[in-house]
Design a protein around this nucleic acid. Structure first.
Length: 507
RNA sequence: GCUCGGUUGGUGUAGUCCGGCCAAUCAUCUUGGCCUUUCGAGCCGAGGACAGGGGUUCAAAUCCCCUACCGAGCACCA
């Protein structure tokens, strides 16, 4: 029995099962693996916890793409929580908060709530106090080096046995700003002999002398470390599923100690590996990009050479295409490479059907033309005759790309116009019988009028390219995705009289 | 050094928990053909993978052990 026969048979025997089979088929669309233990929760709730130190690079799209997709799969929710708890070494960039939310919006997702950790210091302090009362934390004035040495040999530091009252007093002094950076920290008491040294008595709070850039938070000096802050917030905001990188593999184990003190249930965790993106010479890290912009190597976050979401956006890559590509990577713990060709393939599928066609001649060579009709009329879209045809006036001369100039005596087909022969440095019309293309191997090329055309700058990942487009390209409006035939898809970035700027999307 | 994790075609992924219907899925990629006045799309076809070695088993991508390679943590970064 082949598939069809089996279906038919099943339909006779058990129509119910067939319905079930069909609905399963529809859900074959599911691209991500199931989240663990979803049934144990009323609602799947997730969070993205970006550090607002700049707009997002492409890799950052993975988090909203994945949790946004899970949100749709499970009818769940997700929040964005800015983990901006280091005013110094990971100093937040005030513009980045909105830039990141804007990027998430571009990807097509809307967070159910947006929080800033720097608004929540008092909450963290309160939980620290409770932890201290429970004997789960102690103030420690060891230098990092000294503590590390003790810790690595599994020995407690002298401050570990402090009574909670002393710790509490010292903690309040920390909160009140009576210590400077480096003098005192609050540690969570875990297991100083834990076989994994990474889990032994980690720092929960430290003093940072540099004020936070946000006005609302500039008064604070005592800042929680990620593992403490994030652990508290995940619980308080009802997060049921945490998705994070393998660099945070030990976080859950550390935070588990805190959760145990509070008698909380730890959320489900999924770890994924790092993403690398091919095709970019520029290193993909926010700080590197920031530096290149500062040095003038890149024009800005949306420079076509920058590996950022803002750049892809300006290049006309739809958020949906980025999301599909990211979701396609799945959530495996091994590191993955994302090929930009996948993103481009996804985007092409989204824009191809709508993109009108135009000719753009790069580095045009001007060739006199004689003997033919006044104009060429190629279709606006080859699959949609109803959209009509363009009009490209031929005039007395046309532009063609240098590599398209035929050998002397040879013919070439100017698309939408007809066949011409190249002789004595000029083109002469020789007819409109398409059979020469079909049977005689005449090449079809694109062209533009030498007189009446639109000057176009096409910005690409490799630099700017100058060209001339056919006059009808003037009909394209800013933000349109169009295809320059034989060149590739571009997004129209600006359009003034006879001057246009386009950003190259992909071929 | 201590600890934790990973390795399926060029790339990514499904399958691994609960061994058999996996001579391994899907996409991208490369490629042949059809169609086409380009590119793309579409249609038909092709290419290409279970890191290596042992073991358990009637049966292993799947379980166990070893090796190799890759990665992560051991921060007063996130």
């Amino acid at each position: 029995m082949d598939h069809g026969e089996r279906r038919e048979r099943l339909g006779e025997l058990a129509p119910d099962l067939l319905d079930e089979l069909d609905s399963e088929d529809e859900e074959d669309e599911q691209v991500l693996s199931d989240l663990p233990n979803v049934d144990n929760y009323d609602e799947v709730r997730m969070r993205a916890a970006p550090n607002p130190n700049g707009p997002w690079h492409i890799g950052h799209a993975r988090m909203p793409a994945v949790i946004g997709t899970y949100k749709e799969m499970y009818d769940g929710s997700f929040i964005v929580r800015f983990d901006d708890t280091d005013p110094e070494t990971k100093r937040p960039d005030l513009d980045a908060y909105d830039a990141i939310l804007d990027d998430i919006d571009y990807l097509g997702f809307e967070p159910d709530d947006v929080l800033r950790a720097s608004d929540r210091l008092d909450i963290y302090y309160d939980h620290a106090r409770e932890l201290i009362e429970n004997g789960g934390a102690y103030t420690c004035s060891c230098t990092g080096e000294a503590f590390s040495e003790l810790k690595n040999s599994g020995e407690p530091c002298p401050h570990r046995d402090k009574d909670p009252e002393t710790t509490m007093t010292e903690f309040e002094a920390l909160v009140d700003g009576e210590y400077s950076s480096g003098e005192m920290v609050l540690r969570v008491k875990t297991d100083i002999e834990h076989k994994n040294p990474a889990l032994r008595d980690f720092v929960a709070f430290r003093v940072i002398d540099t004020p936070h850039p946000r006005e609302e938070a500039e008064k604070y000096r005592l800042w929680p470390m990620l593992d403490f802050q994030s652990g508290i917030d995940d619980h308080l905001t009802g997060v049921t599923h945490i998705i994070r990188g393998i660099d945070l593999q030990d976080s859950a184990k550390r935070q588990q100690f805190v959760y145990d003190y509070f008698d909380w249930e730890y959320p489900e965790v999924v770890h994924w590996g790092h993403v690398q993106i091919d095709e970019y010479g520029v290193k993909m890290s926010t700080s590197t990009i920031k530096q290149l912009i500062a040095e003038g190597e890149l024009d800005g976050w949306d420079d076509p050479r920058a590996p950022t979401i803002k750049s892809l956006r300006r290049r006309g890559i739809r958020g949906e295409a980025i999301v599909e590509s990211m979701v396609g990577l799945g959530t495996s713990t091994s590191n993955v490479d994302l090929a930009m060709s996948t993103v481009y393939a996804n985007n092409r599928e989204l824009i191809d059907d709508d993109a009108p066609r135009y000719f753009l001649v790069r580095d045009g060579v001007e060739l006199p033309l004689s003997g033919g009709p006044d104009a060429g009329h190629p279709p606006i879209h080859p699959d949609h005759e109803e959209r009509g045809n363009r009009t490209i006036p031929a005039g007395d001369a046309v532009l063609v790309e240098p590599s398209d100039v035929p050998q002397s005596g040879e013919r070439v087909w100017l698309k939408g116009y007809g066949c011409v022969r190249y002789e004595d440095d000029a083109l002469e019309y020789v007819g409109d019988d398409i059979d020469v293309v079909r049977n005689e191997g005449v090449d079809v090329i694109h062209w533009a009028p030498a007189e009446e055309n639109v000057s176009v700058t096409m910005r690409t990942t490799e630099g700017d390219v100058a060209g001339r487009a056919e006059p009808d390209f003037g009909d394209a409006t800013v933000d349109d995705a169009v295809q320059f035939e034989r060149v590739g898809f571009v997004r129209v970035d600006s359009q003034d009289d006879d001057e246009a700027v386009t950003y190259f999307s992909h071929d």
